[in-house]
Design a protein around this nucleic acid. Structure first.
Lengths: 235, 235
DNA sequence: TGTCGATTTCTTGTCGACAAATAAAATACA
DNA sequence: TGTATTTTATTTGTCGACAAGAAATCGACA
C-alpha cells in the first residue's frame, strides 16, 4: 500500500532527461510484456509515478506511438499496441529480409572493432542458453543481431530492423516458458557460423546463413503459435 | 510586409487537429525544400504563425524528429535535417531493395481496387511529364510507388519505403531544374510495364523490373550529383 | 423492466508562464 | 589590441491549470 509501484527515488533529474527516461522505461516494459498488449496507459498516473508533469510524459508517448509501440485513440485513451496475430506473415517476411540484408551488409562493411561487440553479445547469448534463462536469451539474441546490423552501417535498415526485433521480443515473451526446450544449443552454433562468414567477408555465405537462421526462427515461432492455438481450442 | 508568411485564416480548428496540421505542413515544406536543410526551426515563431501555443507545435516536432526529418540539439536549437551526401550509397541500397520488395509484394497480394489507385497516380505522373513540370513529376512519382507499396500490404516495408521516398524527393528537388531534360518519357513506359507485371501477378518479373527501374533512378541521381560536383570544383 | 436522454466523470488537448541551459554580447583586464 | 570573464538574451524544457470530448452513470418515462 505504501509506495507500491514507484520506481523509486531518483529525485535528481537533469533538465532534458525526463522524456528520454520515461521513453526508455516504458519501451522496456512494453517489450518485456510487463505492460500487456492492450493495457491502458494513463498520463496522470505516469506523471505521478515519475514525479514529473504530464508534458515530458506526453513527449515520450508521442515517440512511442511513432514507433508503433502504443496506440492512441483521439481524445480518448492510449494503450499498448496489440500484437497482430492475423498478419504475422508480414512480420515474418520483414524479419527474414532484414536478417538477410543486415547480415549481408555486415559482411561487406564491418570493421574489426564491430566483431568485438558482436562476439561479446554472442557470448552473452551462449551464457543465457547455458543457464536456461529464456528471458535472457530473448534479449541477448536481439542484441546480437542488432549489433550485426550496426556493423552494416545502413541507418535505414538498422532502424527498421530494431523495430522488428522489438516486436519479435514481444512475441517470443508470450511463449518463453515453452522454448527452453526448443531454443537449443543449435542457435548458438548458428550464431558462431554467422560470425565466421561475416569475419571472412563472405557476402553470399552471410546471406545464405542468415536466411536459414531466420527461417528457422520463423518456424520456431509458428510451431509455438500453432501449439498455443490447439491449446486455445481445447478450452 | 503585412501578413507576409501567415498561412492564413484558418481560425476554425478542431480539438485534436493542431499537432497533426502543423506536422503535415512542416513535413511538406521540408520535403519540398521550402525549408532548406539546416534551416533553424523556432517554436515560438511557429506558434505565432499557426496561432496556437507551443505545446502542439512541440508534438509535431517530436514526430518529425522521430522520422529523421529534423534534428534537435538538446537545450539549444532544432533544425531541418541535412542531406547526408557522404553516405548516399546507404540511401541507394535501401531505395533499390525497397523498390524491389514492395513491387514484389504488390504483385503477390494486390487486390483489384489497388490497381485503380495505382493507375490514377500513373496518369498523374504521365501528365506531369507531358507538362514538363519537374516538381509535379517528383511528387507523383513518389505517390505512384507509395501506392504500389500499399498494395503489398506490409506495414513494416511501407513505412520504411515512405521514409526513403521522402528523402528521395528532397534530393531530387535539389536538381529539379536539370532533369526536365533527363527525366524522360522512358520512366512513364517503365511505370506502365510495372503495372502490367503487377496485374499479371508475375512476382519474379516485378522484382526484375523494379530493380532495373530503381537502378535507373539511382544512376540518374548519381549523374546529376557528379555533374553538380564538377560544377562546385569549378568555383 | 427497458430504453432514451441528460448529467457526471474521466482523460486528453491546449494554454500561458516560469526556470534552466546555452550562445552571444558586453565588459574588464593585460 | 587581444583575451578572459561577466552579463544579457534567446530558446528550450517543465509545470500547473483549464476546457473540450467521449464514455459511463444516472434518471425519467413508457
Amino acid at each position: 500500500m505504501t509506495d507500491l509501484d514507484s520506481d523509486s527515488d531518483l529525485p535528481e533529474r537533469k533538465r532534458g532527461s525526463g522524456a528520454r527516461m520515461v521513453y526508455d522505461l516504458l519501451r522496456d516494459e512494453i517489450i518485456d510484456l510487463k505492460l500487456a498488449p492492450g493495457s491502458p496507459i494513463d498520463e496522470v498516473q505516469l506523471a505521478e509515478r515519475f514525479k514529473m508533469s504530464r508534458t515530458p510524459i506526453r513527449e515520450a508517448l508521442v515517440r512511442l506511438a511513432g514507433e508503433g509501440l502504443i496506440e492512441t485513440l483521439p481524445n480518448r485513451s492510449t494503450m499498448v499496441s496489440n500484437i497482430d496475430f492475423l498478419n504475422l506473415h508480414t512480420f515474418f517476411d520483414a524479419l527474414v529480409l532484414m536478417y538477410r540484408v543486415t547480415t549481408r551488409l555486415a559482411a561487406q562493411y564491418h570493421r574489426p572493432e564491430d566483431l568485438v561487440v558482436i562476439r561479446r553479445f554472442h557470448e552473452d547469448y551462449a551464457a543465457a542458453v547455458k543457464a536456461h534463462d529464456a528471458l535472457a536469451m530473448i534479449a541477448t539474441n536481439a542484441a546480437f543481431h542488432s549489433a550485426i546490423a550496426e556493423a552494416g552501417r545502413n541507418p535505414y535498415f538498422t532502424s527498421l530492423f530494431r523495430r522488428i526485433l522489438d516486436e519479435g521480443r514481444r512475441i517470443l515473451r508470450l511463449y518463453y516458458r515453452s522454448y527452453e526446450e526448443q531454443f537449443p544449443q543449435r542457435f548458438v552454433e548458428e550464431h558462431a557460423e554467422l560470425i565466421a562468414v561475416i569475419a571472412a567477408r563472405d557476402v553470399e555465405g552471410a546471406d545464405r546463413l542468415a536466411r536459414a537462421h531466420a527461417e528457422q526462427i520463423v518456424r520456431q515461432i509458428q510451431t509455438l503459435f500453432s501449439r498455443q492455438e490447439r491449446l486455445d481450442m481445447a478450452l
